[in-house]
Simulated assay, not measured.
Amino acid sequence: MPRFAANLSMLFTEVPFLDRFERAARAGFEAVEFLFPYAFSAEEIQERIDRHGLQIVLHNLPAGDWEAGERGIACDPARVDEFRSGVVKAVTYAHALGVPQLNCLAGKAPAGVDAAVLRRTLVENLRFAAAALKTANLRLLIEPINPFDIPGFYLNRTDQALSILDEVGADNAFVQYDIYHAQRTEGELAATLQKHLARIGHVQLADNPGRNEPGTGEINYPFLFALLDRIGYQGWVGCEYKPAGPTEAGLGWREALTA
């Protein structure tokens, strides 16, 4: 059975962020992930991790002004210095918190910038980030996101992500494969997971439509969970979905769909 990590940016959001660690542990999760730690000190987060016996499996590099609608800056040629400063900050947090991998959100394509410039900027930023993370013994991830949820997001498809990683040429850089985003953009979930397993560093889930719990939509999660076991996926599966009701009330899918 896959190992599930609670995404604290999506689950238990009715309580303040630092209180979500306790809720995740009480709900039976052994690991968590979230968008960003930067609003808190590493010491504050580590205290919650230690208290509740959890581990953090993932967080993101700084991604610009999230509250203003920014969703990453890695493809923006006007913000290279900001991106690279963010890499240093993220590595500091990851080291302090024992996080093994960091996700880079490519961001929305800035208006009026040539496509070749966008790609070159992203590739060069990813090379910088991968080198910095390799020195720190960390893995770098990039995540394709569907263009319906985030219109204008630069990175949408698995094949595009793999092509970019080929150009980056770093052996510690992988795809973060979000099943929900992939279903909305390209489908072929099982075939893609099996074909590219060696290049997938992390998997996330939600059902479609609605981005709610597995079992609420069209995706055959019992089949996919069995497939992940069969093909030997060793990582965590991040539960990055919007609960249809109270988080705890919807957690029965973990047993029902993995039996």
Score class of each variant (00 low, 15 high):
145 I>P: 00
109 A>E: 13
56 I>A: 05
78 A>I: 00
156 N>F: 02
161 A>L: 11
82 E>L: 11
136 A>G: 12
84 R>G: 00
155 L>T: 07
103 N>D: 08
128 F>H: 10
156 N>Y: 05
38 Y>W: 02
52 H>Y: 15
79 R>E: 00
151 P>E: 09
62 P>Y: 01
39 A>I: 00
59 H>G: 04
68 A>C: 05
54 L>N: 09
48 R>P: 02
88 V>I: 13
59 H>A: 13
90 A>C: 15
142 I>C: 12
76 D>S: 10
100 P>T: 09
154 Y>F: 15
151 P>F: 11
117 V>G: 01
125 N>Y: 12
39 A>F: 10
159 D>I: 12
143 E>N: 04
44 E>Y: 03
74 A>P: 13
130 A>C: 08
132 A>I: 08
147 P>D: 00
152 G>E: 08
70 E>W: 07
54 L>V: 08
56 I>V: 15
110 P>A: 09
164 I>A: 05
136 A>I: 06
144 P>T: 06
42 A>Y: 05
54 L>I: 08
137 N>F: 14
96 A>G: 03
122 L>I: 15
97 L>Q: 11
155 L>P: 07
84 R>N: 02
138 L>V: 10
136 A>L: 04
45 I>T: 05
122 L>T: 12
43 E>D: 11
109 A>M: 09
100 P>F: 07
59 H>L: 13
143 E>M: 04
100 P>C: 10
150 I>A: 06
143 E>R: 06
65 D>W: 03
70 E>Y: 03
75 C>I: 12
56 I>P: 13
161 A>I: 08
153 F>I: 15
146 N>W: 06
102 L>E: 03
107 G>P: 08
129 A>K: 08
161 A>S: 11
49 I>C: 10
57 V>Y: 03
139 R>V: 00
55 Q>H: 04
45 I>Q: 01
94 A>H: 03
109 A>W: 10
142 I>P: 07
132 A>G: 07
139 R>H: 06
147 P>Q: 01
115 A>L: 08
55 Q>V: 15
124 E>D: 15
62 P>F: 14
88 V>K: 14
84 R>L: 04
105 L>W: 14
153 F>W: 09
164 I>T: 12
48 R>M: 14
124 E>W: 07
65 D>L: 08
47 E>K: 15
118 L>M: 10
152 G>A: 03
116 A>D: 13
146 N>F: 09
163 S>L: 10
48 R>Q: 14
66 W>E: 10
154 Y>L: 15
82 E>C: 00
136 A>E: 02
92 T>P: 01
109 A>C: 09
147 P>L: 01
48 R>K: 15
62 P>L: 04
112 G>V: 13
42 A>L: 06
156 N>L: 05
161 A>D: 01
114 D>G: 14
107 G>L: 11
100 P>H: 06
119 R>P: 12
